[in-house]
């Protein structure tokens, strides 16, 4: 029955929405749906051929019906393909916004799968293990550039920064070991042992984790 493969694609799309990662691209399904559309189009041509351009639907209800069904199927398949591809590009964009280097991650996953860690340079040469189609890899590259260009117009704002309202921006810390000069978002401050500071949390999280600073509650 026409449209069944399209349904499978839509199911894949639905699943993708609820997953944290991107499942492998369904190349065969995509090809099959596209093939179906071309077959339906051929059928249309076959139906219309005997009329040589002067087809009147009101006098040929059976043919008109068949044409309508074909047309609706083709459009439905188109929507399924669009939905499938769009769901995946949405996910890829989400990763870009989250600062994830999608292509790098793909390479790591491939290396892990094939167990060859120094082949990290390959980008899906044989496609094995890559979840993205080659077209999707190209899309990610281009979208990252687009995002970087848009972000670049708002550097003061830090467009991909936190979407939660700021809270407890500054915290009290004591310096446990001399840490020299550190860079904060706005400039340098010098951390000498036993001194206490009221500093931006974001600037010192790492130093707290490393044991140079102690947070005072």
């Amino acid at each position: 029955m026409y449209g069944e493969i399209g349904n499978k694609l839509v199911q894949h799309a639905k699943r993708t929405q609820s997953l944290a990662h991107l499942p492998p691209y369904q190349t065969e399904l995509v090809r099959a749906v596209t093939r179906e559309v071309r077959d339906l189009d051929k059928d249309v041509g076959t139906i219309l051929e005997p009329f040589a351009g002067s087809f009147d639907p009101s006098t040929e209800p059976a043919a008109a019906c068949a044409l309508l069904v074909n047309h609706l199927c083709m459009r439905r398949n188109k929507r399924c393909l669009l939905a499938y591809h769009r769901t995946r590009t949405d996910k890829l964009e989400e990763m870009c916004w989250g600062g994830i280097d999608v292509l790098e991650r793909q390479q790591e996953q491939q290396a892990n799968k094939t167990g060859i860690s120094d082949d990290v340079g390959k980008i899906g040469a044989d496609g094995a293990g890559s979840s993205l189609s080659p077209e999707e890899e190209e899309y990610v590259r281009q979208y990252s550039d687009l995002l970087a260009a848009y972000k670049g117009q708002w550097t003061d704002i830090d467009l991909t920064g936190s979407l939660e309202p700021p809270k407890d921006l500054f915290i009290d810390v004591r310096v446990l070991k001399d840490a020299g000069e550190i860079q904060t978002e706005y400039g340098a401050i010098t951390l000498t042992k036993n001194s206490q500071f009221y500093v931006r949390q974001g600037d010192v999280e790492l130093l707290i984790a490393q044991g140079y600073l102690q947070r005072l509650s």
Binding site: V30, D41, L81, T89, E135, E136, L146, A149
Partner: peptide, 22 residues
């Protein structure tokens, strides 16, 4: 730009193989 990227992505992924009218 985003639309152009998506359009080109759909085209290279499947749409360029569709009948012209679609």
């Amino acid at each position: 730009s985003h639309q152009a990227l998506l359009t080109s992505h759909y085209a290279s992924s499947f749409l360029s193989q569709f009948p012209a009218s679609l």
